[in-house]
Simulated assay, not measured.
Amino acid sequence: MTIKEPLRVRQFEKFLPAASPVQYLDVEGNPADSDARYPRPTDDRLVAMYRNMVRGRRFDQQSTALTKQGRLAVYPSARGQEACQVSAAMCLRDTDWLFPTYRDSMALATRGIPAAEILGMLAGDWHCGYDPVAHRTAPQCTPLATQLLHAAGLAYAEQRRGRETVVLALCGDGATSEGDFHEALNFAAVFHAPVVFLVQNNGFAISVPLARQTVAPSLAHKGVGYGIGSEQVDGNDPVAMMGILDEAVHFAREGNGPVLVEAHTYRLDSHTNADDASRYRDSAEVEDWLARDPIARLRTYLRRENRIDDDFEAQLNAEAETQAAALRAEMNIERATDPTELFRYVFAEPTPQLREQLADVEAELAAESEEIDR
């Protein structure tokens, strides 16, 4: 073990998070004074992170447009949270597991899941759209916090099997008000499960502001009572996000138990396309957070370090546009649907109620078919 290793382990053994969110880049992308000892990512990794963030934002924008075109039933944008989601995917090995929420499509894209498969559920598929086992990524979860219990259980099971698997579970600030959140933290702590809980605190649980959810000093402090190493970080600082999540995953993989990380970020768009955020937040607040854009901050840093230039950005933007065009083409293909699949894959042995419902649907479909034939 090198001299640096004991310092790394101690980062989360202190339990208490920093007094203010850890930050390595200020809002303008310049180095910020910080006494945090988390190892900073290499510039090569930050260039890769920048690429994934730019591509992720273009995917997010295209998905929002597809909703307006009627190709998706709904889409929860994550614009402004790129640093959180990209770092969450990049800090994991291919053999690790990711447990996302409904808003974490950019994390799934960074994980390598095809874009059209990510959107399959939102386009009307009865399943999640991708193969969870093949991608080591659980289905996107709409109910708040329920996936955290699954993540803790899987992490413990992998540990019992003697594997070095780490599980990273994402959730929002609203999820910390749910009982499942606290049960998951307690289980993970008691059984020393190698799971990292990442709370993307974007300020609102739909329209409920954080001040109406908790009076704790920070959401990261919620891990202290369970004996979990906790930290809070500027979620719009890509360098800090990657550094802390790298460290958290390392800590969990080394057998030190779970970690809770709170990322302070912001949801720039409405909760979904069905929401009007102007009803509960001020435009000045949104403008303030626009000035903290994580992509702009990382771009400034990488340009100052001469790691990217105009040619690099032009090529990257062209690549992102090509991928957006391919996604449009794929999502504009009419999808074959079979309503009876809703009943066929609920249980291995269908219940009498499911058989009855299936029969009703089949009869209705047959009647419609006869009407068309006439």
Rank of each mutant, 00 (worst) to 15 (best):
M1C: 09
K4Y: 01
E5P: 00
P6W: 02
V9P: 00
E13I: 03
P17G: 11
P21D: 09
D26P: 00
G29D: 08
D33R: 13
D35N: 12
A36M: 08
P41A: 07
D44W: 02
A48K: 05
M49A: 10
R51A: 09
M53S: 02
R55S: 00
D60N: 09
S63T: 11
S63K: 06
T64Q: 12
K68Y: 05
L72S: 03
A73V: 11
V74W: 11
G80S: 01
E82M: 04
E82G: 01
C84S: 06
C84P: 03
V86M: 11
T95V: 08
L98D: 03
Y102R: 15
A109K: 14
T110N: 06
G112R: 06
I113R: 01
A115T: 09
A115E: 14
I118M: 09
I118Q: 06
A123R: 11
D125L: 12
W126I: 14
W126Y: 10
H127Y: 07
H127T: 11
C128G: 07
G129P: 04
G129H: 05
P132T: 13
A134M: 09
A134V: 06
H135G: 00
R136F: 02
T137F: 00
Q140I: 13
C141Q: 10
A151R: 06
A152M: 14
A152G: 14
A157P: 07
A157D: 11
R160T: 15
G162Q: 15
T165F: 03
V166Q: 07
L168A: 10
L170I: 02
G172A: 07
A175D: 10
T176N: 09
G179N: 13
D180F: 03
H182E: 06
E183T: 11
E183V: 14
N186T: 14
F187D: 07
F187A: 11
F197W: 11
L198Y: 01
V199P: 02
Q200G: 01
N202E: 08
A205R: 10
A211Q: 13
R212G: 01
Q213H: 06
S218C: 11
A220H: 10
K222R: 15
G223S: 08
V224E: 05
G225C: 05
Y226D: 13
E231G: 08
E231Y: 09
D234T: 07
G235I: 05
A240F: 04
G243L: 08
E254A: 08
N256I: 07
P258N: 10
V261A: 06
V261E: 01
E262K: 05
A263M: 03
R267I: 02
R267T: 02
D275M: 15
D282W: 10
A284I: 08
D288T: 11
A291S: 12
D293H: 03
I295S: 04
I295M: 06
N306F: 06
F312W: 14
A314P: 02
L316Q: 04
N317R: 13
E321G: 05
T322Q: 12
A329Q: 06
M331K: 04
N332S: 12
E334G: 03
R335G: 02
D338E: 10
F343N: 12
R344M: 08
R344W: 03
Y345S: 05
E349D: 14
E356G: 07
V361F: 04
E362M: 15
A363S: 14
I372P: 02
